[in-house]
Design a protein around this nucleic acid. Structure first.
Lengths: 242, 242
DNA sequence: TGGAGGAACATGTATATACATAATAATTCG
DNA sequence: CGAATTATTATGTATATACATGTTCCTCCA
């Protein structure tokens, strides 16, 4: 796991060395690692370099640093998983299936109370309500229900999204500062079952995402996947990839 | 979003300033930001400090750096969501519900072909097969099915896991170097429905995790949640939390 | 004109140094 | 003897400096 041997730079070498000791258990949780100056001596480097390495490890959550006391291997508390959520098109193509997209519905209206709750809007605003279907080959792959806050993204008013999905357009148009994801399972309603061409009450994986920009709420989107055809996969190494 | 005003250190101030320009769209994707030396002059700091900030932004994926050309605001390609997966007990307690745990089954055996596939084992090995139920109040909260590779974790042989869940014990016992998560939706089988006290075919959220240590595969675990009672939530800001 | 060679440039890494900060250890004094 | 004060220690931040590395651009010469 500790990279194939030849390390590029000095602090990379030191980093993966220490990382190795930690993940191998040689330095168990709670173990106090050598002080910066000692590390500097051991590896024949300056304290700045040792500091850089330890700072990196601390940011990655592998160690905890306390003034005067020293640096300690951290107690792993939570398992973190980084989900990379690509565009649906990229997802389908990675399965080596032909991708197609169709806009099912498009409404321009004032935000209803439900819309406001989804977008976490305090005041009313014009919104764009879209329903799209993503196909992988002949079969429906994913149902996308999206609300776009036109108060934040007025440029979207003119777009008709009949050719390309709103997700990629949005991401290229406006920068986002925060996103919140909710992932849960749901039995397909009659309507959803019909659109996804699955049986009623089939288990579906639902991913909801709310996105904010500096100008306020941007978009709310709900992706519904047939549960037996799709899984989210996340591979995770403590300390990222260094 | 850019922290409440008073910034601790110099490079924090610079960092959140630049971050703000990027997420606000003032500096759009592709924009070339000032060179290190110029930034140093603008903020009245040394190049090292500017370098530290830009390195940080690059690691966070907000900018891309090219020698000779300069640093550019990155094109946001994938949406990443960091899921923090706590212990079930912490999860239940955060809902302010009383937590209880019960071991349902415990088998010690040689790995079957299915076990080997789950653990990604190439050779056979002794394994511990556990089925546990986590309760929130009176209701079942989560079904845990776990395989532990005793070839990697021989210490687990003696543990009976009747009192405390294997997850916390394992995490404190052996360090892990990699984990892989699979998240999908599944209709409850008759057996699962009975254990979770839900109706047959109810949608469930399933999280599978495979964990490796330096000594090889450690454990495979499958958590099954009633879909309508549980959701994974992840909040994400580009560049982490800086 | 066109391509090889080299200068210029921006980033990447590393060092020595300095002072700030926070926590612990030691010391002093009532 | 115990509380307040001071000293020590390890980390945290910042600077000036130096050289390496990979691009780009320019120049010079065939």
């Amino acid at each position: 796991m500790t990279n194939g041997g030849k390390e590029a730079t000095l602090h990379h070498r030191i980093l993966s060395d220490i990382e190795g000791r930690i993940v191998s258990g040689e330095w168990p949780p709670g173990y106090r690692l050598p002080f910066e100056v000692d590390l500097a001596v051991q590896y024949g480097c300056s304290r700045m370099t040792a500091n850089k390495v330890l700072t990196h490890l601390a940011r990655a959550g592998l160690i905890e640093r306390r003034k005067k006391s020293g640096s300690f291997v951290a107690q792993p508390a939570t398992q973190a998983a980084v989900l990379e959520i690509h565009s649906i098109e990229a997802e389908v193509r990675s399965l080596k299936l032909p991708y197609s997209y169709r806009l099912e519905k498009r409404f321009l209206r004032e935000a209803s109370p439900i819309d406001r709750r989804h977008l976490e809007l305090s005041e009313t605003a014009p919104i764009l309500d879209l329903v799209c279907l993503h196909h992988a080959g002949e079969r429906p792959f994913c149902l996308e229900e999206r609300l776009i806050n036109l108060a934040t993204v007025p440029e979207a008013t003119g777009e008709d999204f009949s050719k390309s999905a709103p997700g990629t357009w949005l991401i290229s148009q406006i920068p986002w500062s925060t996103a919140e994801h909710r992932i849960y399972a749901l039995s397909a309603s009659a309507e959803v079952a019909k659109m996804l061409d699955i049986s009623r009450n089939a288990a579906c994986l639902v991913i909801e995402r709310r996105t904010w920009g500096s100008g306020g709420p941007v978009t709310f989107v709900r992706f519904t996947y047939p549960g037996d055809r799709h899984a989210l996969v996340a591979r995770f190494t403590p300390g990222g990839q260094s």
